[in-house]
Simulated scan of single mutants.
Amino acid sequence: MECKILILDLDGVLITTPPWKQDEMDSDNYSRFNSKCVQNLNQLLQQYPFEIWLSSTRRTVKTLEEFNTIFAHRNIVQTIQGFVPEYPNCKSRKEEIEQFIKENNIENFLILDDDKSLHSLNSNFKNHLVLTELTLGFNKEKLGESLEILND
């Protein structure tokens, strides 16, 4: 089975704290992940071989090693391969993701994100997008959407 790229956001996907509340901290002093969203992510990762690339703005304040420790602490079954680069010419997450996909000639990918700017992705990319809701995250419905995209 061919390896796929998972472009993963954290806030609104695994972290579902409403914007008006301060994040709850886990025992490692990093934001608590929604355990149901983590279970759904693990279910997805167990069915498909992914390389995870973090697109979250949080990628700018921790190292890859730190994030992999955070993921391991939360029992996420897959490590993060890398970060979607911060491109100086990109003004939005949408532009960063498009440039990353084009620059690396990525054909098999899934985007998990809650960023509404992704509604305007190029249609070839938008067909690979699962847009979550900030306080619901990667719930069973979004897992189902992901599996539909991957099974097409």
Rank of each mutant, 00 (worst) to 15 (best):
L44M: 10
Q47V: 00
S92W: 02
K4F: 06
L118N: 11
W20M: 06
N34Q: 13
I80S: 00
S117L: 10
Q47F: 02
L118H: 09
L41C: 07
T63Y: 05
L136D: 12
E95F: 02
T57P: 03
I111P: 10
I7R: 06
W53Q: 01
P18N: 11
T16F: 04
L134H: 13
L41I: 08
L143I: 04
Y48K: 04
I97P: 08
Q46M: 12
W53K: 01
R58I: 00
V77H: 03
Q81R: 15
V13Y: 03
Y30M: 15
Q39D: 15
L14D: 02
S31Y: 08
Q47M: 09
N127C: 11
K4Y: 10
Y30C: 12
Q39T: 08
I76V: 15
N151W: 03
E148Q: 14
F125D: 08
L131C: 12
E65W: 00
D28G: 02
T17Y: 09
Q99N: 04
L44Q: 06
K4P: 00
G12F: 04
D28L: 07
F138M: 03
V13F: 01
L136N: 10
T16G: 05
V77T: 14
T16C: 15
S35L: 06
D28A: 02
T17G: 11
S31H: 07
N108V: 03
F71Y: 11
A72L: 12
L14Y: 03
K91D: 14
D152N: 14
R58Y: 09
E65K: 07
I52S: 00
Y30I: 10
P49I: 07
D113R: 06
K62A: 10
V61R: 15
I15C: 10
K116F: 13
H128P: 07
V77Y: 00
K21S: 10
R93S: 11
I76L: 08
R93D: 11
G12Q: 09
D28Y: 04
L41M: 07
M25K: 15
F125K: 02
N151C: 08
H73T: 04
M1T: 13
V130A: 12
S35E: 09
L6P: 03
G144K: 12
N89L: 01
E148M: 13
T16Y: 02
N105H: 13
E66P: 00
I149F: 07
A72I: 01
K102M: 06
K36T: 14
E98H: 04
Q46G: 14
L44T: 04
G137M: 04
V130Q: 13
I70Y: 15
I15V: 13
K126Q: 15
H119D: 10
F100M: 11
G12H: 05
G82Q: 03
R32H: 05
E24C: 02
E141A: 14
G12N: 09
P18M: 09
P49Y: 04
Q39K: 13
F100P: 09
I80D: 00
L121V: 10
E107I: 03
V77N: 07
N124D: 14
N104F: 07
L8G: 09
M1D: 06
E96Q: 10
H128T: 07
T17V: 13
N139C: 15
I7T: 07
S123T: 15
S123F: 10
I111W: 12
I70M: 05
S35T: 10
D9F: 01
E145L: 08
F83M: 01
